[in-house]
Design a protein around this nucleic acid. Structure first.
Lengths: 231, 231
DNA sequence: CTGTCAAGTTTACACTGTAAAGTTAATGCC
DNA sequence: GGCATTAACTTTACAGTGTAAACTTGACAG
């Protein structure tokens, strides 16, 4: 919505806010009928305009997909923030809750999730990895920060966490695990698989001491969350 | 007509072995111009037949993609076996080599890799998870076996390893990591990220049974005989 | 009122997958 | 050999897709 700043005050021609309406239509199509159904013409038809309108607004179907992905990315970020805030407020609990939010979003919005990660570099949508809650990667970086040894590259642990949860989510959505549409054991498998993260931050660098302590954690407040117990 | 096993000795009509030629053409198209270029018509044109030929042989584009994915899955499996055989023959070394082979294949054949995991359940191509070297999942299961505690569900560790390497490969191919087409640090990040696996098989200790396996045996039994964590 | 311009529409075109009908070669049967 | 059958394609047709150009409409300066 950042780039729509000049679009909101400058009323379009016929439609009220066609750009937002097209994005909303696109997300609805994704949710209802999947990624393959997201076409310029269907999106336009649902918004009540001609098929050339989205092509003109977004400069082709790639632009439409990118705009929808950006909106999806924002919802994805909010979902993870909400999940993290609802869980146990320890460094381990925050990571686990973040990953649970990651997975839940992917399962709840499979087509949108797939679209997000099929639109090329994430830097299209976020240009600042250190933007904290304002960028999805910033959320990951914040949450991983307590486990990063001083002087170590935070990218390693971030990539470990991200790869694990992303691979799990992707294999799940691809239906790779369950032979025949049988898919109720996802959440049963989540907690055991995530135990791999218990050794996080202890392996990468030999000469650095074992820290794993939230020494520089920004807000590792007392754990007030009574719930959100894994499994 | 169902299976082509008898197609090799039984010469088809005009073409020698059109099915194999079409699959080969499809893989070439994937390699040269990407997943979006894999269409019935282009595949047929490259093989020198009409566009309806592959549609007839494979019952639509989905069937063509599935057949190519099956062939790709086989190459994938061989690539991993080769990588595993070329590495250090310790349990840790074998897992690491397997993952390196996984990543190398994905990087070397991005479109084919994406196709493999976009064709739905893997059970289309492999119906036996315990087939050892004869199935890709069997290779993973074999390689993970030394780390599975007796009585534990092997699926947990297998999913941990698979999720980590698959997520890493997928994020890499999606260009999610590198902001500006900068992509030479993949192999530099591989080794540090894979150190997460050093704690494999040791974490799910708390007596809460994370696995669905039978709880008859002592789940904190002695370590697996042959290896037990060097380093 | 006129000129300009953005916002959509209309139209046209190449490409795609699918389906049906037509063609051709091999095979079996007499 | 002659002939029906059938598998292996080809040809043709059609609906849907993205893209590009030309056209239309409304708003807004001057």
């Amino acid at each position: 919505m950042v780039q729509m700043a000049d679009q909101t005050d400058k009323k379009p021609h016929h439609h009220g806010d066609l750009r937002a309406a097209l994005i909303q239509s696109g997300i609805e199509i994704l949710t209802e009928t999947g990624l393959d159904s997201l076409t310029l013409r269907r999106c336009a038809a649902r918004a009540g305009v001609s098929h050339a309108a989205p092509a003109h607004h977004f400069d082709g179907v790639a632009g439409l997909r990118g705009a929808i992905a950006k909106e999806g990315f924002d919802r994805f970020r909010h979902h993870m923030l909400q999940a993290r805030a609802a869980g146990t407020q320890t460094p381990e609990g925050r990571i686990l809750s973040l990953c649970r939010g990651y997975l839940d979003f992917a399962v709840a919005n499979p087509a949108l999730f797939a679209l997000i990660f099929s639109c090329g570099p994430m830097s299209q949508f976020e240009d600042d990895m250190n933007a904290g809650d304002a960028s999805a990667y910033g959320v990951l970086r914040q949450t991983c920060a307590p486990f990063v040894a001083p002087g170590a590259d935070p990218l390693v642990i971030e990539t470990q966490v991200w790869s694990l949860i992303h691979g799990f989510a992707h294999l799940l959505l691809a239906g790779t695990f369950c032979p025949r549409g049988d898919s109720p054991d996802h959440h049963a498998l989540f907690a055991p698989v995530m135990t791999l993260l218990e050794g996080i931050g202890t392996a990468p660098r030999p000469n650095t001491g074992p820290n794993t302590g939230p020494d520089t954690g920004p807000d590792t407040g007392p754990d007030t969350g009574p719930n959100s117990r894994p499994q």
